[in-house]
């Protein structure tokens, strides 16, 4: 399901230009703050990530605990900041992995055609036969739970998508006259791909990757929530939501709301920035 959503959402914004500028700057600023907080976590977080305090459980936000505490008195604000590292690095790692595979396969498929191209098409078909996160769930069922498995599994699911996207971009790029000009001069295919074609694909690909980042973050959080991704004592945001779940029935909403809102806010901000970025990069690309 998630693979459907963000890609359709990222196109055709109808909001006016001015409002979009404001939204873009706000989002960018927010993301910078989040990344900075993640990088500086040990210094900016008021408490350690797992500082248990049984005298202060399930506190509402207040002076001592900015965003309240959870069922064992851990400071939610501090956990959020510490957890930002894993929550943001996870999607980053998965995209890096998927991009290396996807771009390589996609370029080769476009350049060589032949059986590699056919194979890519078949693999994508099979991948798309698994709705939502089911392929990932299968990989986890086989290789066991844990953040590494979740990341690799998601990377495997994303690689064909990126490969397909790269392939279509590369095909368009290869139709440009300069490619033939170099070929006639006897420039090798590998050199041409690495030196010219792939660099020229980067701008549109980058915009797409930013959108995939938001999607990857949601997917990883979902897997952690199900218990398949990050494991305790991590304070990954999806896992934080899962741990907060027990408090809901007793009326304690903060341990769920805080990490849940963090996920949503980052995903929204990333999408706003991504749409804007790909607009810009693409217009520069076309010139």
């Amino acid at each position: 399901m998630s693979s459907l959503s963000t890609s359709t959402l990222a196109s055709t914004p109808v909001i006016g230009r001015k409002k979009r500028d404001v939204a873009y700057l706000l989002s960018l600023g927010f993301l910078i703050v989040v990344v900075a907080a993640a990088l500086l976590a040990p210094w900016v977080a008021p408490y350690a990530a797992n500082a248990v305090d049984f005298t202060a459980i399930w506190q509402a936000p207040g002076a001592a605990h900015l965003l309240g505490t959870d069922q064992v008195g851990q400071d939610l604000f501090s956990r959020l900041i510490h957890g930002a590292r894993e929550s943001l690095l996870g999607p980053l790692a998965l995209l890096a992995l998927a991009t290396v595979f996807g771009v390589t396969i996609g370029t080769v498929a476009a350049w060589n055609g032949g059986w590699i191209d056919v194979l890519l098409a078949r693999i994508t078909d099979v991948m798309f036969a698994f709705p939502g996160l089911l392929f990932v769930v299968l990989v986890i069922a086989v290789f066991g739970k844990g953040p590494a498995t979740a990341i690799v599994a998601l990377a495997l699911a994303y690689a064909p998508v990126i490969a397909k996207f790269t392939r279509s971009l590369a095909l368009a790029e290869m139709a440009r006259p300069y490619v033939d000009a170099y070929r006639v001069q006897g420039v090798g295919g590998f050199f041409l791909c690495v030196r010219y074609i792939i660099p020229n694909l980067t701008p549109p690909l980058l915009g797409y990757l930013v959108v995939l980042f938001g999607e990857g973050l949601m997917s990883l959080a979902t897997l952690s929530f199900l218990g398949f991704g990050a494991q305790p004592p991590s304070s990954e945001w999806g896992l934080m939501v899962q741990e907060g779940q027990s408090g809901i029935i007793q009326g304690h909403i903060w341990p769920t709301l805080v990490p849940g809102a963090a996920i949503a806010a980052v995903v929204v901000a990333v999408n706003v920035v991504g749409v804007r970025l790909s607009d810009r990069l693409n217009s520069r690309f076309e010139r």
């Binding site: 909001i15 938001g214 949601m218 849940g260 996920i263």
Partner: peptide, 26 residues
């Protein structure tokens, strides 16, 4: 109305379903 609907639905789609579910329960 148009931009409000787009913004609201996009925002809602950025909240993972498990978070929405738990907030609804709460």
């Amino acid at each position: 109305t148009d931009s409000t609907i787009t913004a609201a639905t996009t925002l809602a789609a950025s909240v993972p379903s498990f978070v929405i579910g738990l907030l609804l329960v709460s």
